[in-house]
C-alpha cells in the first residue's frame, strides 16, 4: 500500500530514539503509542487492503484515542466516500473525496493545470495547531494526488492549498491530524511536521 518505508525512514530521522515499526498487524497498531496512517495508490484498493488485513477496528480505535497522523490516501480514507470508486471510506469524518474537476483546471493566466497535482504547493493554515510549530505559514509541501477531500464541517480544516480551486489539505480534530501532502518527501518543512507529531501530546 505505497511507500511505507519512506515514512518510516523520515520518522527515524527526526526521532532517532523512538522505535518505529511498519506493521499490518492489528495488535501492533493497538500496542502503539502513536499511529501514522499512510496510503498510496487508489483509495478503494487501500480500503480493501485494510479490511483484508482486518485493520479497520484497530485503525478506528487509534484514530479516536491516540496521536494519529493520516497521510495522503490516509487522509482520504477517513472520509465517507470517494469519486475514485465504490468502496466506502472509514467514515470517521463527514464528507467525501472528489476528483479535481477538469473544467476548472486552469491557472489565472489561462494555462491548463495538469492532474495529478504534482509538486510543491503552498499550504495556508486555518488556525494554530501544535503540528505547525516552527513551520512558517505558506510553506511549500510536496503533493501528488488527483483527488481531494471535502469535509461537511469546515471547522475540521487545518490548512488549505490552491490548485484551480481552493481545497482542504489538512484536517484536525482532537488527537487526529491528517494531510493530503507527503511530509516524508517535503524536505525541512515536512520533517518539522513529523517531528512535531512525534512530540505531540493532545
Amino acid at each position: 500500500m505505497g511507500n511505507l518505508r519512506s515514512v518510516a525512514k523520515a520518522l527515524e530521522h527526526v526521532a532517532p530514539h523512538v522505535p518505529v515499526e511498519v506493521t499490518g498487524d492489528p495488535e501492533r497498531v493497538r500496542a502503539a503509542q502513536r499511529v501514522v496512517f499512510p496510503g498510496q495508490g487508489a483509495m478503494p484498493d487501500c480500503m480493501r487492503e485494510l479490511d483484508q488485513r482486518r485493520l479497520r477496528p484497530a485503525v478506528l480505535e487509534a484514530a479516536r484515542s491516540k496521536p494519529f497522523l493520516g497521510l495522503c490516501i490516509g487522509l482520504q480514507m477517513l472520509f465517507e466516500e470517494s469519486e475514485e470508486g465504490p468502496a466506502r471510506g472509514l467514515g470517521l469524518l463527514g464528507g467525501s473525496v472528489r476528483r479535481f474537476p477538469e473544467a476548472r483546471m486552469f491557472a489565472r493566466d489561462g494555462q491548463r493545470l495538469k492532474v495529478p497535482h504534482m509538486g510543491w504547493n503552498q499550504v495556508y493554515r486555518s488556525g494554530s495547531h501544535p503540528l505547525w510549530a516552527g513551520i512558517p505559514d505558506g510553506s511549500r509541501f510536496y503533493f501528488v494526488h488527483s483527488y481531494y477531500v471535502e469535509a461537511h464541517d469546515s471547522a475540521l480544516g487545518a490548512a488549505a492549498s490552491r490548485y484551480g480551486l481552493e481545497f482542504t489539505c489538512a484536517v484536525a480534530r482532537d488527537n487526529l491530524f491528517a494531510v493530503q501532502f507527503h511530509p516524508e518527501k517535503s524536505a525541512g518543512a515536512g520533517l518539522a511536521l513529523l517531528s512535531n507529531f512525534v512530540h505531540w501530546n493532545p
Partner: peptide, 8 residues
C-alpha cells in the same frame, strides 16, 4: 501563488 515549477 500556487504550484511551483520543479527543477530536477
Amino acid at each position: 501563488m500556487g504550484l511551483a515549477k520543479r527543477i530536477i
